[in-house]
Design a binder for these strands. Structure first.
Lengths: 196, 196
DNA sequence: CGTTACCTTGACATCATGTCAAGTGATTTT
DNA sequence: AAAATCACTTGACATGATGTCAAGGTAACG
C-alpha cells in the first residue's frame, strides 16, 4: 500500500520537487526530481501515482512550510473592513513569491491534465474564501463601492489577486514585490472601497 | 500560385489549426491538425518547422481574420483621453473572445518552449503599445490619477487587460463578455482616471 | 520529355510518462 | 534461526508525442 511507506523518502522527494521547480521551472521531469531526491525514478511512483499527484502534494507541502493558512487568516483580526482588505492583500503579497514556483507548475499542468486542473481549483477555492470574507467585511461596514454586487466584487478581487497577475507584474514587467503589493492595494482601494 | 482555385495547403493547415484549437483546447497534436486539414502529418512540417512556429503563424492568421489592428486602432479617433481609454477597452473586450483559443495555446506552449514565449511577447507588445497610447492621452489631458507614474499606469493597464484575466473572469468565474467588458472599464476608470 | 514544386507514405530516432517483474537488504515475525 | 515483509533498486517494456529522413508519386510548366 502506498500509504504505509516510510515518511523520510516521501519528504525527500517533495522537497527535491519544490527545489527543482524553483531552480529550473515548470518543465522538470520525474527522473530529474528522483535524481535530485537521491532515489530511483520508480521510488517516486511508489509514493505518487503520477506527475500531477506529485505536484499537488508538493504544493500542499510547500503551503505547510510557508504557513499559508496562518498568514492569510491574520487579516481576520483587523478592526474594520478597509484595513482587513489591505491586510489581506499585504499577506498575499508576502506569500505569493513563495508559492509561485509550484503554482506555476500546477498551472502549466492544468492546461493538459484534468486532475491537475481540479487540484488547482481546490487550491484556489481557499483564496476565494479569503476574498469573500474581505468583501463581506467591507460590505458590512458600508464601505463597499456602490453599484457592485457582492459576488462581482469577490470575483474581481479574486482576479486581481491571481497568481497570473503577480507573474505579469513581477516577472513580465519587472516590478519588485513591494511595488506589486502597493499597486495591488492601490487598485483594490480604488475599485472596491467607497470614496469618502 | 496564380490561377490556383483551391486554397493553398498552408492556409488549409492554419484554418484547421485554429478550428481544432477552438474545439479541442490547447493540447491538439500535429497529427490531429494535419488530419483536420486533410493533409499528411509531414505536409505540416513542410510549411512549419515545428509546433511553436505553427501556433505563432496561426495566431497571426487569426489576427488578420479578426481585423485586430483595425479594431484596436479605432480608439485613436476618440476626442479625449478618457473616452479613448474606454473605447480601447471596448475594442479589446470585443476582440479577446476571438483570439482566446489560439492565445491560450500559445500561452501553454510558452511555459516550456522558449521560441513560443518570444512569439507571445512580440504579440503582446502591440497590446502594450495600445495601453501606452491610451495612458499617454490620459496624461496629456491631465486626467491620469495622481501618484502614479506613466510607466506604472501602462504596466497595470496592460496587466488588467491580460488574456489571463479574461480567462479568469469569463471562463473561471462564468461572467458574460459584456459583464467582463463593463467591469474592465469600471476598474480602469477607478484606478487610472483622476476623480472630479 | 524532363525538371521542378509539392505532397504522400512509411520508417526511424528521441524523449517523457507510466507499468511490470524480479531482486536486494534490513527488519520483523514466527 | 528460518521465513516473511517492507522499502527500495534495477532494468526492461509499452505508449504516445515531436521531429527527421529517404524514397516515390503527380501535375504544372519549360
Amino acid at each position: 500500500m502506498a500509504g504505509s511507506v516510510a515518511r523520510g523518502t516521501r519528504e525527500k522527494i517533495l522537497e527535491a520537487c519544490r527545489r527543482k521547480l524553483e531552480e529550473q521551472g515548470a518543465d522538470v521531469g520525474m527522473g530529474e526530481i528522483a535524481k535530485a531526491a537521491g532515489v530511483s525514478r520508480q521510488a517516486v511512483y511508489l509514493h505518487f501515482a503520477n506527475r500531477a499527484e506529485l505536484l499537488v502534494a508538493t504544493a500542499r507541502h510547500a503551503d505547510m512550510a510557508a504557513n499559508v493558512d496562518e498568514l492569510l487568516s491574520a487579516s481576520r483580526g483587523a478592526p474594520d473592513g478597509v484595513s482587513r482588505l489591505l491586510a489581506y492583500l499585504d499577506a498575499w503579497a508576502q506569500l505569493v513569491p513563495q508559492i509561485y514556483p509550484v503554482a506555476r507548475a500546477l498551472l502549466a499542468m492544468k492546461e493538459t491534465d484534468a486532475s491537475a486542473g481540479a487540484a488547482w481549483t481546490d487550491r484556489m477555492a481557499a483564496q476565494r474564501h479569503g476574498c469573500q470574507a474581505a468583501i463581506d467585511a467591507l460590505e458590512k461596514d458600508g464601505h463597499l463601492v456602490a453599484g457592485l454586487s457582492n459576488r462581482a466584487a469577490v470575483d474581481s478581487l479574486w482576479t486581481l489577486m491571481s497568481v497570473r497577475n503577480y507573474e505579469h507584474w513581477v516577472m513580465d514587467c519587472g516590478w519588485t514585490v513591494e511595488a506589486y503589493r502597493d499597486e495591488l492595494k492601490r487598485i483594490a482601494s480604488a475599485a472596491f472601497i467607497k470614496a469618502g
